[in-house]
Nucleic acid binder design. Sequence first.
RNA 1: GUGCCUGUAGCUCAGCCGGAUAGAGCGUUGGACUCCGACUCCAAAGGCCGCAGGUUCGAAUCCUGUCAGGCACACCA
Length: 575
Amino acid sequence: MIDYKDELSEIIFSKVGEKTGLSIDEIKDLIEIPADRSMGDYAFPCFRLAKEMKKSPTLIASEIAETIASFGIIRESIAVNAYVNFMLDRETFIADTLGTIAADSVNYGRSRVGCGKKVIVEFSSPNIAKPFHIGHIRSTVIGNSINKIYNFLGYDVERINHLGDYGTQFGKMICAYRHWGNEDDVKRDPINTLLSYYTKFHEEEELHPELADEARDIFARLESGEPEEVKLWQWFRDESLNEFRRVYDLLGVEFDSYAGESFYSDKMQSVLDELDDKQLLLDSEGAKIVDLEEYNMAPALIKKSNGSTLYITRDIAAAIYRKKHYDFYKNLYVVASQQNLHFAQWIKVLELLGYDWATDCVHIPFGLVSLEDGTMSTRHGRVVFLKDVLNKAIERTREIIIEKQVNTDDIDDTARKVGIGAVIFQELSNNRIKDYVFSWDKVLNFDGETGPYVQYTYARAKSVLRKAGADTQICTHDCDGVDFSRLTGDRAYDLIRLLYGFPEIISDAGDKYEPSIITRYIADIAKAFNKFYHDEHVLVDDEAERKAKLLLVKASATVIKIGLSLLAIETVEKM
RNA sequence: GUGCCUGUAGCUCAGCCGGAUAGAGCGUUGGACUCCGACUCCAAAGGCCGCAGGUUCGAAUCCUGUCAGGCACACCA
């Protein structure tokens, strides 16, 4: 596909480069895409040239427009105020864009920039034996999309679920299980049962303080690898993971590794030794810290006064392990913005340890989810479970399908894909940094620019293609013999301009770790497609015109499908 | 108290590496189906871009201050 910005900057440079004194890169940097089609496909602002050329920018613009006029890919150059507006040759542009999409098909926008580079995405990372609630959806869905995007850009992605599967809480849980537990209850409903043990432990601990010692003892035995304790811990972990997997299956999420906190428990001492060797460790109030005052940060607490290690110690160990084991190009952490300070300290400590790859470690923060009556709190019963949200979305979709007599071959399959897609689409619509308040009304509302709207658009496009295939035998993969001059409508052109921008959208979303860029883009495509579809009849009698239009319909469906797949949303052929 | 994030239409949000009249969805009001799928499309109303300074030919965008909300700030993760 032609890079029009490149072509354009070359033309401008060769024609007026000397006069302006700008380099080709500077010119390319200045070129913009006007908001309104009437102002051309590309625009070149001339304000900056005024000082150098000692002329008014308006005059410069008209001189440039006159010099370039119609040349190569440019059909027309028009000076408006201090801008030169360039109109492309539409037929060339359309043929090039639709031809590329037809040829690349499901690989349109795929890149090889990441070839041979390892990217680690750590995401989701729930705590074992705790319910998976709506607050966990963000890391899971954002991380999963970032994984898909990087994969599409050619990177070798390693998906890590850094489970919260270690700590004194497991001593308490095993202790509680031994006193009041029951194997069948755990098997029937692992997470709720384990959680109830944990709660029960805290109640009993008030009356029998000696339980705390017992739990501490048990955790010590677990740490030293006593088979009895390890077996129970492993069982709790497996049961919890099985339950998490049900949610992951619904969301289409997979992991390459579940190496969580427990995995690093034996890798802590070497971190402490290393910090000590490099004289970074200070004694403070009986604990070991790394002083970060010089960097305007609170000290990083590495080791508690009772000798045990902390979160940051584990994250340091994990980063060092991952560098050795994976030799990552980037090591990404999709974790809530509440932990900004923790990650800033962590990166700084890695830097102080002398690791030049510290800057390849990136914290990808996201905002807080709260409920109308306050912050989520499992203990206070202020909690919305993720599986309830997903199931209700599926249920609501099924109701609509029946109520509106939606055309579908498989109600269950359609309800699942569209319902889950609606939740993911909404979750990935806003910038990840924004906080939001969860609302059932909002998550179950499918009006406007939502997942169902986009999926409906896709199904409609596919419907037209099916119809065309049935009565004309047209092969839309084949651009030969297509007369693109038949695709003259502005609505078609707007849509094609959007389709052209897809590869850049993907790389932008990757650079910014921001799936919402793709979400909003897909919504724009759907909107532009619906406008086109509404204004122009696709299955016209004239064969050349019909072929050209079908190619556009096909290209739109292709881009919607790829885009949604990067958000981990499945499409349906009918709905 | 200190640091970070957020503040744009009634609501939810785009736009933020400066550029042309500040955009979208929802909601409101009014339109469009002999037509490929009406979960569609068209139009209208609705904005001191939190506030005040500054930089600039030009600021929602950059800088400073300030107000409001959120988060974090040593033995949880």
